[in-house]
Structure formats: structure tokens, C-alpha cells
Design a protein around this nucleic acid. Structure first.
Lengths: 143, 143
DNA sequence: CTGGATCCTTGAGGATACTG
DNA sequence: CAGTATCCTCAAGGATCCAG
């Protein structure tokens, strides 16, 4: 999703009738499609996973995050952090000092997300070569 | 990535110097960031995973895919299939008949991708409720 | 039926300036 | 230092038409 500049959004959060089965509740194909889209819109944006990843080792302040994430803009970091906080994946602790200090930390939920994500990363890292080769072959074939 | 309407693109495919370690080769933080972005730009678009998912059970024709994926446009299906084919995740078999028939199937690589993806889906499905709750709490808190 | 090509809308996301 | 608001750009992606 990656929130629009304004609105709270609230898109299809209609899990209602389905009991909490591990995968594909209600047996319909489209429900799994919804789940896939859900998870993708949550962590599939440009920065969320990188933030989660950085916070996996321990809490960090806003500026530390900004420096360590390379390329992220001030605006997108705030926005990404708000989203993650809203989804309960990251916690925010503000110390009323001068100058202000704010620490962000991954919640248990956030850390639990890191696991399956790591699976994906491993896959990517392990099959990077195959993909590159496939691309080269494909591009070569379409002379 | 989700290719632009034209260009072959070829962005940062510079794995060169790194030996093929399973995760985080070369030990630098930014290299893992690159991997994450790589995998996201490959499967993190709106449709790729859904196509991979549909093809996991067996080959399907273009129109079958379009009907089963709900919401995908003609244009995006072609585009997504081209990308997946280029990356070696999907194979395309065209039967020179009239009317033409084209079958798409997941390759071994494509099926291997489905595994870690399933992990993510399970996570999403298992923690959907927690996230929804977190959101409600968050939205309620900011009166 | 499959697959381009073209047009057009929308929103993600960067740059920047301003507040506490 | 942390956060918000405004402006602007550019590409993702839908609709549609044409071709083999």
C-alpha cells in the first residue's frame, strides 16, 4: 500500500467470516490472492523490509536509520515508520529531551516477520545467478 | 522492476566480485540491501506472485490465467508473463494452431520460488489478525 | 486466442521549506 | 533532531484498438 499523503485508507480488511486457518481459509482461490496482495502491499514497498532488517539487531534513532539505509529520503523514512508502527511491526519511543530523541525498535511481530523474509532473501541470493543467466539467454535469443 | 513499456533495462546486475555465499556475500550491509531490493523488484510487483501461484498446479493458457487471476488486465498479464519468462521462472509453449494456443508453466526455478513465498503467505495469514488489531488500536489512539 | 502499441490517469516517492 | 506539509516528476498500470 504505502499510504497516500493523507487518508487512513482502510482497504479490504474483511477477514470476518473466515476462521483463522493457517493458509487459504474458506478454501477459495481468491482469498489466497487477497492474502498475497495483503502481505505484498505491507512489506513489498520500497523501504519497509530494509527498515525491519536494520531494526532487527536493536533499536535505532531516526537519523541513524536514515544514514544506514542509503538512499531513503527523510519523507519516506517517516512514512515507512508510521506504517510499520501502525501495523504493530515497529515500536516508537520518544524521549522528551532537547534536542528530541526518538528510538525505533522492532516488535516481536516485526521480528517474526523477519524470518520468512529471510527465506526469500536466501532464495534470491542463492538463485541470483540462475536468473541473470536466464535473462542473458532470453535477451540474446530475441536478436 | 516490472519493465518499462520499452527498454531492456539491465540495472545493477553486478554480482561479479562476490563469491556465491548463501546470504550476505562480501559481508557488507548494503549488499544485503541490494538483494532485498532485487527480490522485491522481481516478485514484489502487483501480479508476479499471483501468476506463479496459479501456475504452481500445472500449465495454463493465457485466457485461463486472465480469468483466474481476477482483476488483472490484458496488458499486465502479458507483461508479467514476459518478465517471468525472461527471468526463467515461467516457460512459454506456443502451439501453431488456429486459433493459436499458448501454454504457460512454472519452471523448476519458478516452483522453487514458491516455497519461500509460501512461508511469507503463511506468516501473513497467521498474523493478519494481529496486524488488524494493531491498526485499530493505532487509529483509535490518534483520536 | 494471443500479443503488441498507444493514450491517459493516478499515485509513489524525491526535494525542500517550515515547525517544535 | 524529529515531523509535517507542499510541490513536482515519472512510471505503474488500466482501457482500448489493431494484427496475426
Amino acid at each position: 500500500m504505502t499510504i497516500t499523503d493523507a487518508a487512513p485508507a482502510r482497504l479490504g480488511d474483511d477477514v470476518g467470516a473466515c476462521s483463522s486457518a493457517p493458509v487459504d481459509p474458506c478454501g477459495s482461490e481468491s482469498s489466497e490472492a487477497r492474502i498475497i496482495r495483503d502481505v505484498l502491499s505491507r512489506v513489498g514497498d520500497k523501504w519497509s523490509l530494509l527498515v525491519i532488517r536494520m531494526l532487527h539487531n536493536g533499536p535505532l534513532r531516526f537519523t541513524q536509520l536514515q544514514r544506514s539505509i542509503d538512499g531513503i529520503s527523510h519523507r519516506m523514512l517517516t512514512q515507512t515508520l508510521r506504517n510499520l508502527e501502525r501495523d504493530g511491526l515497529v515500536s516508537r519511543t520518544s524521549y522528551p529531551e532537547i534536542p528530541p530523541r526518538v528510538e525505533y525498535a522492532a516488535t516481536d511481530l516485526g521480528r517474526s516477520l523477519a524470518l520468512p523474509v529471510l527465506g526469500l532473501v536466501e532464495w534470491a541470493s542463492g538463485n541470483h545467478a540462475s536468473i541473470t543467466d536466464a535473462r542473458d539467454a532470453f535477451d540474446a535469443a530475441r536478436d
